Simulated assay, not measured.
Amino acid sequence: MIRHCVFMRFRDDVPSLDRQSIYRDLQTLCAKLPGALTITSGANVSPEEGMDKGFSEGFILDFADAAARDAYLVHPEHQEIAGRIVASTAGGTDGVFVFDMEV
């Protein structure tokens, strides 16, 4: 299984409704992709002050395998959502941290 972790530093001027729309669209996309198992999103609630490096929100998506993850990455709907994420984060791609691990 591949765990795809994405953390964001949203700009302060990005409304909560826009953020929720991104998460909702990701859930809709993942519901129709073979091998996409679960998606969870939310705000950082860690008590370890400063350790988040400003990445205040994120989502974790589990895939059955690397092939399912790779199909997601090139999917046109993912590309559109990823573009919205980058446009909404502080510093563009600098405001996004992606980490995949095999579990």
Rank of each mutant, 00 (worst) to 15 (best):
E77K: 08
H4L: 08
G50W: 04
S56V: 13
D62P: 10
V14H: 02
F7D: 00
R11H: 01
Y72M: 06
I85Y: 02
E57M: 14
T28K: 08
A87Q: 10
F99I: 11
V74A: 05
G92M: 03
A71Y: 06
V45G: 14
E102A: 10
L73N: 04
L17Y: 04
G35D: 03
V98N: 11
H78Y: 09
Q27N: 05
I60V: 15
V86K: 10
C30D: 00
C5R: 01
F97Q: 09
C30M: 13
D18E: 15
R24E: 11
D62T: 15
Q79G: 02
G54D: 05
F59C: 12
G35I: 01
A64C: 08
L33N: 05
S88A: 15
Y23Q: 07
P34Y: 07
D94T: 04
C5L: 13
C5K: 00
R9I: 04
G83I: 05
F7K: 00
A87L: 05
R84K: 14
V6E: 09
P34I: 10
G58T: 03
V74W: 04
D65W: 02
R69G: 02
Y72V: 04
L29P: 07
K32I: 11
K53M: 14
D70V: 06
Q20M: 08
A31W: 09
